[in-house]
């Protein structure tokens, strides 16, 4: 195994930075540290090896887009489109993430310590052994899990104050697969028309235990404490939400 490589990304255009990444990964390097990252896009996009990339700073949009295997750890905030159409791998963000987190992801895991923007988990889908999983420590904006066709989305709301609840509306609009777990209460009016809330069963608890466990491990929380709280499960009412729309 090769030693860890450190790249100073200061002042480097994303194209050059990604070319460097490609080169060091093809050399067999398994651990890379990116220092001074200031908004460079598409980090990790063209990588399909199980390499670990640690980012210090603020990566730009489409972090890990189309990614197939690497593990990215961000010490800072991620922007929009993080994990876009991701196939496999892991993204761990010690901070916030922007809009459309995990758009159309088909696999891999994303952990965000703080809050996320609009439409997180939109159109995630699953297939056979591929199942995207997203855990958000903070809260989310509207349209969380919109059009979701598969995978698991967990919203923990750890930073909500006593008596405060999630503000997102239109949660799960158009959802037709997968599951959303929300720690704390959500009101009926916050939900999209295509989802309903349910109590958790044994399987749900084991899913939560595993993923919240991983989340707690990454960010130094006590999983047991988090899991003590009540969770609500949102599930799609219809596998074919728009099946009755048409005249044949």
């Amino acid at each position: 195994m090769k030693e860890a490589v450190t790249i100073d990304a200061k002042g480097i255009f994303y194209r050059e930075l990604n070319a460097k990444l490609r080169k060091v990964v093809s050399n067999g390097t398994q651990k890379i540290e990116l220092r001074n990252v200031y908004g460079q896009r598409y980090i990790g996009t063209d990588l399909d090896k199980p390499v670990e990339i640690e980012i210090f700073g603020t990566p730009g949009n489409d972090l890990g887009a189309f990614m197939d295997g690497p593990r990215i750890i961000v010490h800072g905030n991620a922007q929009d489109g993080c994990g876009n159409t991701m196939n496999n791998g892991e993204i761990i963000i010690h901070g916030h993430a922007g809009d459309i987190l995990g758009l159309s992801a088909r696999g891999g895991k994303i952990f965000v310590r703080e809050d996320v923007g609009y439409r997180a988990g939109i159109h995630m889908k699953e297939y056979q052994d591929k199942k995207p999983m997203v855990v958000i420590g903070g809260t989310a904006q509207d349209f969380l899990g919109e059009y979701m066709a598969g995978g698991i989305l967990i919203l923990l709301g750890l930073k909500l104050k006593e008596g405060e609840s999630h503000k997102a509306n239109f949660i799960g609009t158009g959802m037709h697969g997968g599951a959303i777990y929300i720690r704390g209460d959500v009101e009926e009016f916050q939900l999209g028309k295509e989802v309903s809330a349910a109590e958790l069963d044994e399987n749900d608890h084991s899913v939560l235990k595993k993923l919240v466990g991983e989340f707690a491990y990454h960010f130094g929380y006590d999983a047991g404490e988090i899991l003590k709280h009540k969770f609500t499960k949102l599930f799609p009412l219809y596998l074919r939400p728009y099946g009755r729309l048409y005249a044949y």
């Binding site: 459309i100 939109i122 159109h123 699953e126 297939y127 066709a149 037709h176 697969g177 596998l239 074919r240």
Partner: peptide, 17 residues
């Protein structure tokens, strides 16, 4: 398509990115 058999494949009107 890499989606489960028998499920609707819904393509949203816009690309959300």
């Amino acid at each position: 398509r890499m989606i489960p058999k028998g499920t609707d494949a819904l393509s949203p009107a816009p690309q959300h990115d």
